[in-house]
Design a binder for these strands. Structure first.
Lengths: 236, 236
DNA sequence: TCAAAAGTGTTACAGTTACACCCATGT
DNA sequence: ACATGGGTGTAACTGTAACACTTTTGA
């Protein structure tokens, strides 16, 4: 039994895969392997199959491209202009993925002709993918302002200057390092390691790692009309 | 020309329509007019047509039910478990609508057997609609903490005690009225009217109205690692 | 006149910002 | 020895929370 007189449509998933290499934000793009727009740069995408939810499809497709599982992956928005794909109507569900470039670089599958592009130097993208990238960055800025998601972009061990550069890059601003480190450390989210990263200075900067206990629990938001201690868990 | 070897699927829109009557939050439900689950309570929904985006579909369907246009309507999340609808696979894109019950009550179309239910006394809903309602409330709490969206639920003119009750209801808390009014008024978002609402006290409470100039611009968020004056417009 | 809700001010505290110098090390 | 980036403390300020009494008026 089926619903009658309704038209069915292709549903695709497209992922904006964001990375940070310690200095710059990058996005992973592929050269599309089939018409239309064959060979043009594109977000990683694919069609949702019969037996999977769209979340599952996004994870499956991400794994095909990068070999990665258990990556931060969040539904962004549905893009559905009837003529966004010239071949036939495709409703696209965009996802944002945050991954640690360094750790996983070797796993990127070359079969897909995937390449990291500097965020500031993206090539032209097919269809409405540039709009998707814009929306993804807006969302990332928004969430990063209140949630510790940017840690997803960092390796196991990272330094405070790296962390600060990541926030400065995303918000395109300079932050006072004294205030920054005080705020970050006051969350008790970080554990100081014994060793230092000497790759970018002579003195070296201490490594820190995430305190997994507190992460995703300890971090909360501030708000406006409601007294602060009334906000418990505003998960989003 | 078409993409080959891909299966097409029905795409629907379901809207969680939230209202506030001055005392309680309510949700607008309909009795589903067709099988399966005919006569059961359901969110307002419908299938996306060939020539419209999903945003357009959501607006169209909302207008069919309520007669309302230009209502606050926001994409919430895609619900896509393959078996969420027993008849055939349907991918549902959930929307949240915020409407002023009082102003539009007369426009609600009775043909649809629509009824407002107290949020605290919802009936059983079909499919995964209860999950959608839960997600909608979470989103509403989240956004309301940082954005002035709850004003969408109020009539043109409203009182501070009403506004406060709305925030208290959503967050299930009590707020000090002195602090609340100081904070709210300090945003310069409200204009004090000359007349009072005497419906709930002898003294009467002054009406206020939104200063449309400032609304949607003046209201900003606070954040954590980034100095406050670095946050310009974190639209979401 | 009294009950019920509206309206208003002050003080203590906490969090945020602005700001400048010393430290460690490789060359 | 010096250049480079890493690390730290304090004081002024701003925003938030806690708190209680007076006002208005219909019944």
């Amino acid at each position: 039994m089926k619903y009658s007189n309704q038209s069915r449509v292709l549903v695709a998933v497209d992922s904006i895969i964001i990375g940070f290499d310690g200095f710059d934000y990058k996005i992973l793009l592929i050269q599309r392997g089939f018409a239309p727009e064959k060979e043009k740069w594109s977000l990683m995408g694919g069609f949702v199959q019969n037996n999977e939810s769209v979340d599952e499809a996004a994870n499956r497709i991400l794994k095909q491209l990068t070999g990665l599982e258990d990556v931060y992956l969040e539904q962004l928005h549905v893009f559905s202009e009837p003529d966004r794909d010239p071949i036939e109507r495709v409703i696209a569900i965009a996802y944002v993925a945050l991954i640690d470039i360094q750790k996983y670089q070797q796993q990127i599958n070359d079969d897909f002709h995937a390449r990291w592009f500097l965020l500031k130097e993206l090539p032209k993208l097919i269809f409405d993918h540039e709009e998707m990238v814009r929306a993804a960055l807006e969302r990332l800025r928004y969430k990063a302002a209140f949630h510790p998601i940017l840690f997803e972009l960092l390796p196991e061990k990272f330094t405070l200057p790296q962390l600060q550069a990541m926030y400065e890059g995303l918000f395109d601003t300079k932050i006072d390092k004294r205030n920054f480190s005080r705020k970050v450390l006051s969350t008790n989210l970080l554990k100081k390691e014994k060793d230092k990263d000497k790759s970018s200075s002579k003195k070296g900067a201490f490594f820190y790692s995430l305190d997994e206990q507190n992460y995703k629990e300890n971090f909360q938001s501030i708000l406006n009309f409601i007294p602060k201690n009334e906000i418990q868990l505003l998960n989003e």
